[in-house]
Design a binder for these strands. Structure first.
Length: 321
DNA sequence: ACCTGTCAAGTCTGG
DNA sequence: CCAGACTTGACAGGT
């Protein structure tokens, strides 16, 4: 089975090539709309060019899997700010899609905590629709074929009712958006099995988050659930995606550490190796690409894993002998 | 040049 | 019922 490694949002190596230079609403308000829009537009252009730089850097290092930060376009989902974030940027944005298509780079997004599709507050649900619409527009703008990861969300007043709300609201989304949503188990509320059952019913691919599984489970046996989790990706056109991270410390279990603990990672690989199937693994840690490269060095030193290139590898029977 | 509080937004817990 | 935690990178404003 082939494993591709990816990382999240920004490169520590290219520290000056940020593509998430933002503009706060507070500063937007301080000037008149015309001037603010001009500043905003400049930032967006710089961000899109910066994003292309990072994708090139990733490709140069054999990294073919990356999470886009939605901060590439600031203020896009705020009702108080209205501007066309698509057509002025189409020309430079097309390069993103052309590049990732040419080199087979997988790009995903992850709407943040404010996207709560099953909130009891109708305004929050409305805002969540807008956030999902924006993420869909990002894919369109860059002409890339990607997915957006979200969580089930709220558990008010109890999980049963909250899951019911999730399903109802999901059904009201545009088909185009439904096809792009993938669902992840979280670290406090919804466990692997609970998310899996929703995914199976609604035919949504499931993202397994390994650290969240360790923080939040009902003693579910992960290995026995893996075939079902991976099966949710059948017919999606993508290989299953997994999030992997390491706790910062025993006390701060849910916080991400700077580096990946390679022993944890090897244990995890042994678990997923049981299901012989290609997987893309996204590393979530503060060390970003630096942590990815360090993990690769450790895998090369401590295992017999066969690397296809600088970063990606084949997992088989001989990997750990 | 560097440091600290703030940022548009939600949910949950605990006092 | 409300304040604070959660969590995150970058801005904004002060020294």
């Amino acid at each position: 089975m082939k494993i591709h490694l990816g990382y999240v949002a920004l490169s520590l190596t290219l520290e000056d090539t940020s593509y998430s230079r933002t503009m706060t609403y507070t500063s937007y308000k301080k000037k008149d709309a015309e001037e603010s829009n001009k500043i905003l537009s400049e930032k967006i252009k710089n961000n899109i060019n910066g994003l292309l730089e990072i994708l090139k850097y990733n490709y140069d290092n054999d990294i073919r899997f990356f999470r886009l930060s939605h901060k590439v376009i600031p203020l896009a989902t705020l009702d108080e700010v209205s501007f066309d974030y698509m057509s002025p940027f189409i020309n430079i944005s097309k390069k993103i899609g052309a590049f990732s298509k040419k080199y087979n780079i997988r790009l995903d997004t992850h709407p943040d905590q404010f996207c709560v599709l099953n909130s009891i507050n109708e305004d929050v649900v409305k805002a969540s629709f807008k956030i999902l619409d924006f993420n869909n527009n990002l894919f369109k703008l860059f002409s890339i074929d990607g997915k957006m990861v979200i969580h089930v969300g709220s558990s008010v007043p109890n999980k049963d009712e909250a899951i019911k709300r999730f399903k109802e609201n999901f059904k009201n989304l545009d088909d185009e958006i439904k096809e792009k949503i993938i669902l992840e188990n979280d670290d406090k509320t919804y466990t692997v099995l609970e998310v899996l059952e929703i995914c199976e019913e609604l035919k949504i691919p499931m993202v397994l988050d390994y650290l969240h599984y360790k923080c939040n489970n009902n003693s579910e046996d992960l290995v026995s659930l893996l075939p079902r989790i991976f099966a949710t990706w059948d017919n999606s056109g993508f290989v299953p995606k997994i999030h992997f991270s390491t706790s910062k410390s025993r006390k701060e279990k849910r916080s991400h550490s700077f580096y990946i603990n390679y022993k944890d990672f090897i244990n995890f690989l042994k678990k997923i190796a049981v299901v012989d199937r290609d997987v893309d693994v996204m590393l979530e840690c503060k060390g970003k690409d630096e942590a990815l490269f360090r993990l690769v060095r450790q895998l090369k030193f401590y295992t017999n894993i066969k690397f296809i290139d600088n970063v990606n590898f084949i997992l088989d029977k001989e990997s750990f002998t």
